[in-house]
Design a binder for these strands. Structure first.
Lengths: 281, 281
DNA sequence: GCCATTAGCTGACTATTATCAGACAATGAC
DNA sequence: GTCATTGTCTGATAATAGTCAGCTAATGGC
């Protein structure tokens, strides 16, 4: 219920300052991300930070990696103040719920969770990006790490069927990222072949964003790309540890087929006919 | 989904003006109600109205009933502008929902309805008021009208057991109103007797506010009053047409008993023991 | 008629939020 | 090294929002 950005919670502090204080978080935050997330003008952000700095709640220092970038961190007092905002927000929520009985409270919280989940899902935006883009690399790192951790054999991206960036770049293929407010939370890629089905690769959804139907949406956009490339079918291989993914492939219309490659990491091979051969696009 | 009071919707107009424009509604609105609902300072409200008047969207005139009171009405242009705000808000909502599939949309709308309903329920405030208060009279008028309409015999408030204002005023009894943001949406009263159970009367919840548990809450506050008066039981009589009320009484622990009065309008008599006789309060 | 109250208006401020142009240093490509 | 770009800061200026005291006109009780 954190979205109650009322002036009431701001404790006599301008709402803008309270928002910044909140958004910095306990681990600090780059000023540019702060600006992006709060949609602040650069001048305004600077002034808000200056004012919070003057109040002793925040310290802003240059990043060591890139000295143009400034990083805002809460001081001890700032952390206390933020905790207080948190507490106030909780108290407000509690007082809102107070007149309800237990049943109604459970219902309300359940419904709010559903709303939040679905609004989050609705905020997901899928964009095609270059397979070399830092966001793409970040997704792949997370993907590989998860594969390595979940499969019993461990995963080596170098082994098996290749999916180098240039193979996932149009017209050879493409790479999609699912963004949640400019934060990458999932990806998927496809590699086209002449005369044989396109090959779906690198399907991944961040742990934090599962259950929102992101995988399904990425897959369906990849299928659209497959059709655009002229291919009529898509196929993919996957490890048996990825049970949710396998279930999703099945429910999206993929049928298990005999191994079509010798990917050592795969246990299941799937294929889906997207268009009858020779039918119009 | 009208609560999205984003600056985005305000169409280059200050948010405050847009809010006033919206709140005036198509039927016009007294300036004081406007101020109350939007929590505006009197000066600020005046200026906003002046500015909207200058833009030709609103006309403000004195009320004929009380010439101190001013009533704001939308002009033709104002109505058009308001419709546009409405449309924008709908479009925004639609674009938010756009990425979701039908199933998810249904889920989201269902959950939002639940949230709205329960937050409304949580905003209900029950206050003890004088039985002669205009709000009390308003409730009673609505209550009598509904009884008259729903019962097959028609209802005459003059007939049957009395419940005059003085009988519903402490210490003889009390009258409660359930307010939803200063709008009365339900009521209930109790009439105490020496040596016999208190008599619950005038239980009513406005059509528009049913299903929020208001009746149950009013009843339970009345029971608290009964205990405070020193009585140990509460009883009530009711017409067979009021099926929801009867179900609510039963589920609140009232048991049907033999008629304890000769109220001609009643078909069912209920009683509930609130405290063992002689037990401490 | 007298007087307290109510509803609203105006003037005088202050605070907050928003915009824009220009300055400056750091960075990275060449 | 040059140069375009990026990230931030400052000054100037508005627009919007919020507050307060004092004023007027109506109203209703007496």
């Amino acid at each position: 219920m954190g979205a109650l950005n009322d002036r009431f919670l701001a404790r006599g502090r301008p709402l803008g300052e309270a928002r910044v204080l909140w958004e910095i978080g306990s681990d600090g935050c780059e000023v540019r991300t702060l600006r992006m997330r709060l949609e602040l003008d650069s001048g305004q952000a600077s002034r808000l930070l200056r004012s919070l700095e003057a109040a002793g709640l925040v310290r802003v220092a240059s990043s060591s990696a890139d000295r143009r970038v400034r990083v805002a961190r809460l001081t001890r007092a700032g952390r206390a103040e933020r905790a207080l905002l948190d507490k106030r927000s909780d108290e407000l929520a509690a007082s809102l719920l107070d007149p309800l009985d237990d049943d109604q409270r459970d219902q309300l919280l359940g419904a709010m969770r559903v709303v939040e989940r679905l609004l989050t899902a609705a905020a997901i935006e899928i964009r095609q990006v270059d397979a070399n883009h830092p966001d793409a690399r970040q997704c792949l790192r997370a993907y590989f790490a998860e594969l390595d951790q979940r499969s019993d054999s461990g995963f080596d991206p170098a082994a098996g069927v290749s999916a180098e960036p240039h193979e996932l770049t149009p017209p050879a293929g493409c790479f999609l990222i699912a963004y949640l407010r400019s934060e990458p939370v999932g990806c998927g890629a496809v590699k086209h072949h002449t005369r044989s089905p396109s090959h779906i690769k690198r399907m991944w959804v961040s742990q934090s964003a599962r259950g929102l139907g992101i995988g399904r949406r990425v897959l369906s956009e990849l299928e659209a790309q497959v059709l655009l490339s002229g291919a009529t079918s898509a196929r993919l291989d996957t490890n048996r540890a990825l049970v949710e993914a396998i279930a999703m492939y099945r429910s999206a219309g993929y049928r298990e087929v005999a191994p079509f490659n010798d990917e050592p990491f795969a246990h299941h091979w799937f294929e889906k006919r997207l268009r009858v051969r020779g039918a119009p696009l």
